[in-house]
Amino acid sequence: MLMVVMMGIGILQLVSYSYRIQNLWLTSNSSINLYCGIILLISGPVVFFLLPIIYIDEKISLLEFFSLRNINDIDGGIAGFQQSIYFCLSLLISLLLCKLSSFITKKFSN
């Protein structure tokens, strides 16, 4: 979910920069928003794949480490329908965060 929220905010910043949608801006500076968007879009998957580093204490190969995120549905992975619910929820959170940030930015700049 964290990956989708991060990438969702990133996408919203990119689209709001491209089409000048001011009520989705994270900050009042459009260039900063664009850079934030690109960074969030890239860092989402990076965080997702590197996060297991926190709880891994045994020595494993690099290939095994990157395979940790590949889990079958029946072994604890997320099934398709569940995935779509989490995905929609994450996008809603990212949209609300952007709207809130834009609202606060507008309030303080006035």
């Binding site: 989708v4 996408i11 997702f48 794949f49 997320i78 995935q83 995905f87």
Partner: peptide, 19 residues
């Protein structure tokens, strides 16, 4: 990975929604 490219494809729809 089960999530990476499927999520990217769905995010493309999210981008399109606001474009």
């Amino acid at each position: 990975n089960d999530y990476l490219i499927p999520v990217l494809s769905a995010l493309s729809l999210f981008y399109l929604w606001f474009s």
